[in-house]
Design a binder for these strands. Sequence first.
RNA 1: CGGGAUGUGGCGCAGUUUGGUAGCGCACUUGACUGGGGGUCAAGGGGCCGGAGGUUCAAAUCCUCUCAUCCCGACCA
Length: 576
Amino acid sequence: MRYSQYLLPTLKETPADAEVVSHQLMMRAGMIRKVAAGIYSYLPYGLRALRKMEQIIREEMDRAGAIECLMPMANPAELWQESGRWEKYGKELLRFKDRKSADFCMGPTHEEVITDIIRNTVNSYKQLPLNLYQIQTKFRDEIRPRFGLMRGREFVMKDAYSFDLEDAGADDSYRKMYQAYRNIFNRCGLKFRSVEADSGAIGGNFSHEFMVLAESGEDGIVSCDSCEYAANVEKAELIYGDLATPVATQDLTKVDTPAQKTIEDVAKFLKVEASQLVKTLIVQTSDDEVLAVLLRGDRELNMIKLTNLLDVDWVLLAEDDVVKEATGAPTGFAGPVGLKIKVIADAEIKGMADFVVGGNAVDVHYSGVNLERDFTVSQFADIRQAVAGDPCPRCDGGKFESWRGIEVGHIFKLGTKYSEAMNATVLDAEGKSRPLVMGCYGIGAGRTVAAAIEQNHDEYGMILPMPLAPFQVLVTMLNPKDDQVRDAAEKLYQQLLDLGIEALLDDRDERPGIKFKDADLIGIPLRVTVGARNLKEGNVELKARADGETVMVGLDDVAAQLQQRVADALAFEPGN
RNA sequence: CGGGAUGUGGCGCAGUUUGGUAGCGCACUUGACUGGGGGUCAAGGGGCCGGAGGUUCAAAUCCUCUCAUCCCGACCA
């Protein structure tokens, strides 16, 4: 491709409405343009990166035995009513009517459509297992789209659905996808973790997320420093080991804590560590229950764990008036002593003695508080957020490290939820009708490209990994008016094309500075500069975008060398 | 959906407090010079100031409504 004939509109300045690096750089490098909130056009350069991503996904899915298909964006309401999600999905489901006033929605995911296909085409266990996937544009009317491609309303996703006769087979399908996903992200050259995840509304307790490690990631994850265990902090299990049996040495004492509301305030005021405090959170559940939750002062509540423990739809921190009613004091002074409502405590509390709690009255706390003697807890459980340094639940002596991650893939075991709701059954060997056991597997293609940029950039621009780069080699023709330079660059460009290398020739009549700045910005991994200065010696300059390493290469050797370097950068062994 | 902010040539911004002929930088067009890190000079083109209504002799500026976008919280690839 010739730059002079391409559409690659780079921006010198960062657009005001782009917050995260990937969004800023994708705008600046002429990859995308916004059309509406969370809705973007892919410009040619961005589309090439997206297509690279899609092709890697396609190849690894095919390798894993999945079969590509393509389902429609417009879904009839009937299918969604059948699964029950027409009512349940809420406002994120974009609904509309056709000319006959029939209800439709834009597909945010395709369990309904694929299940409909399978129930109409598969009747026997002999046709199983099956795993179908598509790479398609999804629409979810997100409450708050943000960060460019990171959370769009319209986005390109690969979604796959597996169908098995039995649970064991479904587990096998799941494992194949797990491996395929590892292959995909490894092949992209991304640093990532596959982590155990909460399966959320979909149910089941078998789910992994694939997280590209990046500081700007929206998710917190922990991984063990000595074994394979890794999990979303929402999910990360904690072990409490043999907690020392607490021995009370102090009497319950009421202390005045004027205007000391936060944990930090109280700890400082009483000259104790935050870990010597127990905080009491008043929460409300979807079942309209109000209860108290106890945590060590320096810990954070994990809402997901609590929601799962209580088996409710949601849990929220109580409104101020509810707190007042439950504790008799304004928010900030709740404590378990004398409290009438049910109390749930993080298991860690069991090992504590002589701690400080709120006094259920303004400016009052209790010190020297002890379990059983001063109050009782109806249930101890793992309800706190995991942090770095916590012991690993799967191995001896391992400790958690913590990371930020961008969720680029998620795999679930669905079980028979949809097959039962939609009556998707096959006959087994005994001629008995059985619901299919399903799994579903998603990858955000556009988001993965954004995540790759989030992980690979510097102050000058993006540093694209070779497998995702729109072009593999950039040939910069320094002065197009110099015949020697022009001829040499043109010749090299042609050689590269003949070798099957994806090359961009910067043949614009621009000053060198502009070409170098643009080259840094758009992040093509390998760059050859053809200029009069080095050409005199018969050389060109070969520079790697990633480490800036620069070598002089003879004009006649450079094409072969580039071919080798591109091949090396693309080499990939599936597995691990 | 709650809270906060912003809408002025393609991009980044000033002008709004205190109404009075719409401005700057970059980009763009033409010409010349220049040619290894966003170069110089000269001459140009482009915006009814998000939209609607109101106040006024006069509105980018004041008032009302509205739309859009961005950021922070509960959801998700």
